[in-house]
Every structure is written in C-alpha cells, then in structure tokens.
C-alpha cells in the first residue's frame, strides 16, 4: 500500500462496498432458502400407525416424511440376543434398552446410515438387517455391526397413543 493517508473518498468506497455486500447477501438468502423443506413438507411431520395385527417376529414398513420406518414386534429370543451384546463389540455403542423402551417393539428409520438405501429384513450375519447396496450388517436392535455404515439406524421420536397405535414424529 502507498503511504497516502485515507481520505474522505476512501471511506466512501469502503462504506459503499460494505452496504453493497450486505444488500447482495440479503437478496441471495431467499433464493437459497427456498430450496429448504417448505411448509407443506414440514406439515407432514407425524404419522399414526395401527399395529394390532402385527405378530411377534414380524416387521411392517410405513412411510414417514418420505422415508421408510421399520416397526418390528421382536421375539423374546431377539430381545435376549440384542440385550446380551457387549458394548465394546459395537461400532456405534448404544444399549438396546435405550433404543427400544418397550423391548417388544423396535421402531426405527429403515434407512442405512451409509448412503441411504433401505436394508432388507431378517438378513445378514447378525439376523437383523442387511443393506444390499454396500453390504452393511445390522443386528436385531438395528445397530451397525459390520460394513461401511458409520452409525446405528436412527430411532425417530415416537409414542404409543394407546395399546394398538404408534404415533411417529
């Protein structure tokens, strides 16, 4: 830079650039934010499912926010296997007690945490789920045991409205 002292004009330039930058950002933001989920998408935030016909050992898949949700009524054997796993054997350590508050019911997003495919039921080395896309194996609690996925399958917010109905979201 030169030794010239800042003048009135330099101040005006700087002020103009600053106001211009703020103005440009204010115009760009709506153009960017319009791509985020809109009000109608957000309005579909919860789904109620009747699970009275589900027998132990069976899974139903329901669509919530465009994503599949697995609802599995687990057998006692599956619960025992899931609860007897040592934490140090897990890639993403989470207790089964924390994932399924009511041990008979496992409610989770049927979305592989690797790249978003839908894993297959009753498959894989741990008799839980197996993702056909890139070979991730999940156990009977939906926890990642083997393969490229970094985390366990996600547990969404849900509650039992009554004995037969689960509200997801």
């Amino acid at each position: 830079m030169s030794d010239k002292k800042p003048e009135r004009r330099d101040f005006l330039f700087t002020a103009t650039y600053a106001v211009g930058a703020v103005g440009a950002a204010a115009v760009v933001w709506p153009l960017v934010d319009q791509m985020n989920p809109d009000a109608s998408v957000k309005a579909l935030a919860s789904t109620e499912v009747n699970v009275s016909s589900l027998k132990p050992g069976n899974t139903i898949t329901v669509l919530w926010r465009g994503k599949p949700v697995f609802i599995r009524r687990r057998t006692q054997e599956e619960i025992d296997v899931a609860r007897s796993v040592k934490m140090e054997d897990l890639i993403h350590p989470e207790k089964d007690e924390d994932r399924a508050k009511n041990p008979e019911w496992l409610v989770m997003l049927g979305v592989c945490t690797h790249l978003g495919c839908v894993p297959l039921n009753d498959k894989g080395d741990y008799d839980g789920w197996f993702c056909p896309c890139h070979g991730s194996h999940y156990d009977t609690s939906g926890r990642i045991r083997k393969g490229p996925a970094p985390w366990n399958m996600e547990i969404p917010k849900y509650e039992f409205v009554n004995a037969n109905t689960i509200k997801i979201g």
Binding site: M35, N36, P37, D38, V41, R65, G66, K67, G116
Partner: peptide, 30 residues
C-alpha cells in the same frame, strides 16, 4: 438417494446440506 447422500459426509453441516438439496426429508417431488 445415494449420490445426494454423499454430501452427508461433510462434517457438521452434511445433514443440513442434504435436506436443503432434497427440499424435504427424502428424495421426493421437490
């Protein structure tokens, strides 16, 4: 789904970027 999920690998903001790309919580009409 698989290609847009590649962006979820970005640390911290990944999930937000993917939701922004989708315009929802999964690949859908938007």
């Amino acid at each position: 789904t698989v290609i847009t999920n590649l962006f979820s690998a970005i640390p911290f903001v990944g999930e937000g970027v993917v939701t922004w790309l989708w315009g929802g919580y999964s690949v859908d009409n938007p």
